[in-house]
């Protein structure tokens, strides 16, 4: 079993809502996912379209967007967990009913993992790993649970 769990820092997250959100992002030089509930890569992170005019932007540096209305821009403090190694999908079978092997590269999924609502993001090559973001208050629980699951899955396969 080749998978490891780690906290991930260094990404600045912003949530953009309201009419004109897409235009505002485009104006700031960000790529826009055409389809709702999909994501495209951008400078070290991604832009995910979470609704018709709702976006989640994750980047190395905080996007310089006007906080005035509309659109409204809110800082996010999501707890980020990185699963690395090709067996991450196998490890998550203990906590998630979704068929995560089918995710593919550059995927975006908002789902429930271990009873907590999260978003899942794969890189260009889905076998490389997975980034999980959840509400910061659930971060400790989710990370602890994932570490448990990974160590259990490892002992299973021995």
């Amino acid at each position: 079993m080749n998978v490891s769990v780690s906290s991930r820092g260094g990404l600045d997250l912003r949530q953009l809502v309201g009419a004109g959100a897409a235009a505002c992002l485009q104006g700031a030089g960000y790529p826009i996912p055409e389809v709702v509930l999909s994501a495209v890569p951008c400078s070290g992170g991604f832009v995910a379209r979470t609704g018709h005019d709702e976006f989640l932007v994750a980047a190395d540096e905080a996007p310089q967007l006007s906080a005035a209305s509309p659109p409204w821009c809110f800082q996010r403090s999501d707890h980020l967990i990185e699963l690395t190694g090709p067996d991450w999908a196998q490890a998550l079978t203990a906590v998630c009913p979704h068929d995560l092997r089918a995710l593919g590269g550059d995927a975006w999924l908002m789902a429930t993992v271990a009873g907590v609502d999260v978003w899942l993001r794969t890189g260009p090559d889905s076998s490389g790993g997975l980034l999980i973001g959840c509400d910061p208050s659930y971060g400790h629980y989710l990370e602890t649970t994932l570490r448990e699951v990974v160590s259990e899955t490892e002992s299973l396969k021995q």
């Binding site: 906590v95 009873g115 208050s137 629980y141 649970t145």
Partner: peptide, 11 residues
């Protein structure tokens, strides 16, 4: 099975 009991911590 496993018991899922999500717990929330304040910051």
């Amino acid at each position: 099975g496993r018991r899922f009991r999500p717990q929330r911590y304040t910051p």
